[in-house]
Design a protein around this nucleic acid. Sequence first.
RNA 1: UCCUCGGUAGCUCAACGGUAGAGCAUUCGGCUGUUAACCGAAGGGUUGUAGGUUCGAAUCCUACCCGGGGAGCCA
Length: 434
Amino acid sequence: MTRVRIDEIGRHAGETVEIAGWLYNLRKSGKIAFPQVRDGSGVIQCVAVKAQLPEEKFEALKHLTQESSLIVRGKVRAEERAHGGFELDVEDVEIVQRVSEEHPYPITPKEHGVDFLMDNRHLWIRSRKQHAVLRIRAEVIKAVRDYLDSNGFLLVDCPIFTPAACEGTTTLFEVNYFDDEKVYLTQSGQLYNEANAMAFGKVYCFGPTFRAEKSKTRRHLTEFWMVEPEMAYATLEDVKRVGEEMVCFAVDRVLRNRGAELAVLERDVAKLETVKSPFPRITYDTAVELLKKKGSTIEWGSDFGGTDETLISEEYDRPVIVEKFPQQIKAFYFESDPERPELALGVDFLAPEGYGEIIGGGQRVHNLEVLEQRLAEHDLPREAFDWYLDLRRFGAVPHAGFGMGIERVVTWICGIDHLRETIAFPRMLYRTKP
RNA sequence: UCCUCGGUAGCUCAACGGUAGAGCAUUCGGCUGUUAACCGAAGGGUUGUAGGUUCGAAUCCUACCCGGGGAGCCA
């Protein structure tokens, strides 16, 4: 008996095969039952006819509970009425574990609230929409890695445990190490990336990052995944170019390979098809003028709020690149604009449709004296940055890089309204379970 | 941390000062083409917790707990 996956069952039309999965839904009449079985790759409707099965098998199937695990054997048949185009005529069924009716599967095919679904996240990920989102996430990650791998970047991952003060301002999660030593969960691989870039030229890291900010919005997780490319002998221009190419590449891949998933999510793909080079580029100065014209209370010198980002992005049909921010709102390691030293050579990519910042990056300070002065200005402990300063002592070159938040990108591509569905087990301010 | 909204059956909600209800889910019965199937019946509740006002509180008041959305900050 051939065990097949539901997503490739079409190749076995006319054959008798076996599928192993879980009961997704069940409709029944007196002498016929339609169990829908999912196996992780898809869902197929099976047809069980009383007269063609042993009595006890038919009865067991007819009274089977949602999400019970089962193995079904039967003949694959092309069927116009079926959603996937195929059905399975049941010849034999083996129930692996029956969900008891005293504790039925909590997630029914009806509506549920966010709180309930989040409490049952370990089960919610079995649902069709969650499958679509998580498959698109996997596609985005693969696309981003394929793009970087085939453009000369080497994957060099950065540590998760870090000593204090990677960037200074943002709150860090503290962890007890050995013998009273404290370490912190990384909030960015950035500094280590710079060392890696001086070693390998073009590198990227990809992994989880942690922010202990008490942010409680649809755009924040306390644990999220970020891809961070870093390039030696590179400038702000390279960041804009690589970021743009990478985003276009990822969107194109999803459109090409995950059309079915986008359809499940009822995503308006026309809004993704416009995501092509070139992206509009505006300066922070221009953005502030635009915002004031649109009624924002923003003043030059402060950072954009969530509403400001939406106001800017709604002017465009693709991500917009905002560059050259006031130095005071950016981290200590940003290079200054030689023509206007009060500006940092930083960029943000704002996704369309109000999805906010998906990329942040820029050109780094590569001069030793300037960097030492910056550390002093930001009141950062010099000792902790000794190794980082070494990078300016031993063959310093202009270099630049950026970070892209995977969940932000996936949320935007999926067109869903909250980051929490783009990772299997989201970690948020008041939610660490399951 | 602050602002704001909410917590009633397993789930989604109604009742808004006068005996706590519906749909779905579960169980039983009916139905050979259903597809969030349908039809009939049954079981299921200390209304988040603790006080208070009232003849009477799910409903009004106070505090607390838990959660949603947002601000600040950021990807």
